[in-house]
Nucleic acid binder design. Sequence first.
DNA 1: ATACTGTCGATTGTCGACAATAATGAAAAG
DNA 2: CTTTTCATTATTGTCGACAATCGACAGTAT
Lengths: 225, 225
Amino acid sequence: MAFTPSENLPEQLAREISDKIIHNELKPGERVIEARLADEMGVSRSPLREALRILEKQKLVALTPRKGARVTPISAAHIEWYYDIFEALYSLVARRAAENATAEDRGDMQAALRQIETAAADHDIDAYYEGIFAFAASGLQAAQNPLLETLLRDLGPANRRIQYASLSSRASDLQHNVRFFQEMYQYLAAGQPSRVEAAARAYARNEKIFALKIANGDKPREDAP
Amino acid sequence: MAFTPSENLPEQLAREISDKIIHNELKPGERVIEARLADEMGVSRSPLREALRILEKQKLVALTPRKGARVTPISAAHIEWYYDIFEALYSLVARRAAENATAEDRGDMQAALRQIETAAADHDIDAYYEGIFAFAASGLQAAQNPLLETLLRDLGPANRRIQYASLSSRASDLQHNVRFFQEMYQYLAAGQPSRVEAAARAYARNEKIFALKIANGDKPREDAP
DNA sequence: ATACTGTCGATTGTCGACAATAATGAAAAG
DNA sequence: CTTTTCATTATTGTCGACAATCGACAGTAT
């Protein structure tokens, strides 16, 4: 019926569902029934089942053998777990990117940095996120480790989910975060892998405490009934 | 019939197939045909398909949308990629384990260390691996990060696959590797997370160069026709 | 009242059949 | 002899139906 030129049905379904999870239409802890979602989306259970396995890989749902799927809960502890792992993996990305980046990679990162800078100056959150994703993508490209790439790509949606929760309180400190990216780029261009790695670690730690602050006291995002 | 009280069919299939991959009965790059494997193992394609997705999560097969599954190739580059990630993740495990370990955790690790020591003294490779797995498991337990746990559990089979390839040349240097575990345990017991982390990094780096040495010049494992 | 047991409905697991797509090889054209 | 085109076959993708399992509830016994 739909005119989708050619993409994988399970992946497409997974993306749709992950959007719902990220935007909190499917709530943490909520059960996901295959049959219901399947005909809600107009497909059979087979592709939807595979979609659920993709979402499991992305840590958006937890799949228990004969009891079905539940949307992964998200608490302060979860946030700590995630950011610890992001720090570990992105610090590796940073080091390897610094060691292996080609001129083209550096160009891409510089372009991404520019976007980050102007977006932050304009308080344009969407452009800002676009920029940091591009920056990360260039770094991953430069790091030359496909396995690491898939691991982090799989964790991407979970990352976005956490960030979305703290999105509202975000606009104020964009300016402050820009420094991290500038630092990373400068050290990378200067060929100092250890410093790039350290900057990535510092950024990850900073993000972690920010997300935790939101998750506790401050205003988290809420959907009206 | 069999007495396995309750285990998941797809997971069971995945384990069987992963054994075949680890022991090189299914060769790197080889194509895996669903229908064939399915009735070779006496099941329908549905559970086998899910098994393939599990194996993909474990990086033992690569799954391309309309072209099926292939056994993941394994080269020197792959080994570098894997060990870089192991270093990043296990160094995190080490630090958090050092920070959070309970008395019971320390007891488990000490027991595992004992097994490692005696196994190395006896040149008993199986017992040695049992020991280091137990050591790692205790560390993961202590680290208190379930997400990290699942990530590393998923990478476990790929790890074993690499280790199996270098198994033959292993017996000689067991004695030498024991030091790393002794060091980790001692610093952990002494409450020095940074040193535990450093020891874990050193161990991972050491393993990496060892695996690379085997993958290049030395005698790799071969199966007779 | 509480704990146990059996039944019923809901949901997941597995299967075989069919449709859609990709790989193979053979014939035709250059 | 090489390349292109096309038909045939092999393989993956999707579906609906059925079987196995789980959760909740009612009924009974203690």
